[in-house]
Amino acid sequence: MWQGIELLFQYPSVNVKYILDGLFFGSIFALSAYGLALVWGVMNLKNLAQGDLVILGGYFTWYFQSAFGLNPILTLPLVMGIMFFFGWAMYVLVVKWVIDKDLFTSLLATFGMALVIQQFINLVFGPETQTAISELGRFKFYMFGGKIIVPEIRVVGVVLCAIVAIALITFMKRSRTGQAIRATAQDARAAKVMGINTDRVYALTFSINSAICGASGALVAMMFLIQPFYGITYSIRSFVIVTAAGLGNLPGVVTAAFGLGVLEGYANNILGASYQQFIVVFALVVVLVWRMVRLRKARMVLE
């Protein structure tokens, strides 16, 4: 560990590598966190299957690439489409029945879904780590005279991530459906009275979230590794980010996501990958305590 810290000072350029790593992580975290903020804000659903949707999307990309030789980048819209319908099915079969029940019911139901998804992936694809190899993967950017190597696919991944995010934000701001979703988020009862079919809005919101997770997962499969049981860490990451940023705060989500990404970038390089979950949970506890201290000043509690 100390060696890692010494290295930071001996070769300041490694900082650039860690920060870049962090930004690559962060862009992916931002997508799934935005999805969580969406379902949380609109239908008050704390989705514990968030990370497993991400991993499921990743497996679709990996499967199309390894079985049919499709370019992973081309699979992105395909995976988003499939995950959209998967999300719709999940809404009709499970989420619909629990959103108006008490909190733990929906939390546990989504936890059950998380179990089903991860175990299903495990049974079908096996427990090995996988990555979707793309044509682009061979080219690498060299920086600082070759000290830092950035695979091209990661840069492309971040660009794709930005495209998905911008498309999504435009959709939410401009389209009628997006407006209906935002109206329902503000006041479901008023929206209902105004003739918005809230059940449909909920279904749509959850499906969009699922599609976002799918996109995020496709990027994970391209840029990093996927494994059936990685999902829970992604779920906790999304919670960390949304809790730190608050609901309906898009710049906050992006900032928090990059912050968490950079933190993990440093932690992975200094402490090693075996402290990954610990770092995420540590971040969660720090964020929760920080929010609580701030709320306590206003004599409120985090609920």
């Binding site: 909190l103 860490t233 809790t243 949970v281 929760l288 609920e303």
Partner: peptide
């Protein structure tokens, strides 16, 4: 931590 924060916090706690 209340509600969902307690559930997910404790889940993270045991994983960590």
């Amino acid at each position: 931590f209340r509600g969902p924060y307690f559930a997910i916090g404790t889940l993270g706690m045991v994983l960590a």
